[in-house]
Amino acid sequence: MTTRTIIACLLLVLPRLQAQEPAASASPAPADDAAAPSADDAQVALRARLLDFAGALGNEGFKIRDGYWSGALDAGKVRRLRVNLLAGNQYWFCAAVPEDARGLKIEVYDPAGKPAGSVPHKAPGLAAAGVTAEATGPYFVELQGSAGPSRPFCLIYLFK
């Protein structure tokens, strides 16, 4: 391993450390209205892909929540969602972006803000994280996109 190779590795991973955070505000950023049906064809297509993907998990006893979180994922930025999980339940959080978008990452954090030890799954334009809730309380689901233009995203979750 040459010094040049090590530096190349560092240059590839360092941008991830500089992912921009939303500006601090007194209250959480307004959430997209995931309760209203979207006329956006891209969102409909994303949700359809997710439901198709989630069907396999349904065979393992996971139930799909009807609600979803959707919006736009800007390049290099993160979005975080607060969810309330129950101790002992197992969950899968599944997110989709258009298939030609790369680098979608999903991470789940526990009530103390620590990574919840999720089991990752990746496929083109899809990312999923499976977690067993050790404690009841608020957890945080973080989505991060890669470099490139802002892309629509959709997230659903399943439980058992």
């Binding site: 950023a29 959430a31 979005r79 975080r80 969602l81 309330n84 002992g88 990574p115 945080f140 973080e142």
Partner: peptide
């Protein structure tokens, strides 16, 4: 994943159809 800060946790979004669990989840537990 580095730990989230208190500010990051406080700034997380809340979307009722996903953030609030259903009674079914509660009963499963």
């Amino acid at each position: 994943g580095a730990d989230l800060t208190a500010r990051q946790m406080k700034g997380a979004e809340h979307v009722a159809p996903v953030s609030i669990p259903t009674p079914a989840e509660f009963f499963a537990a």
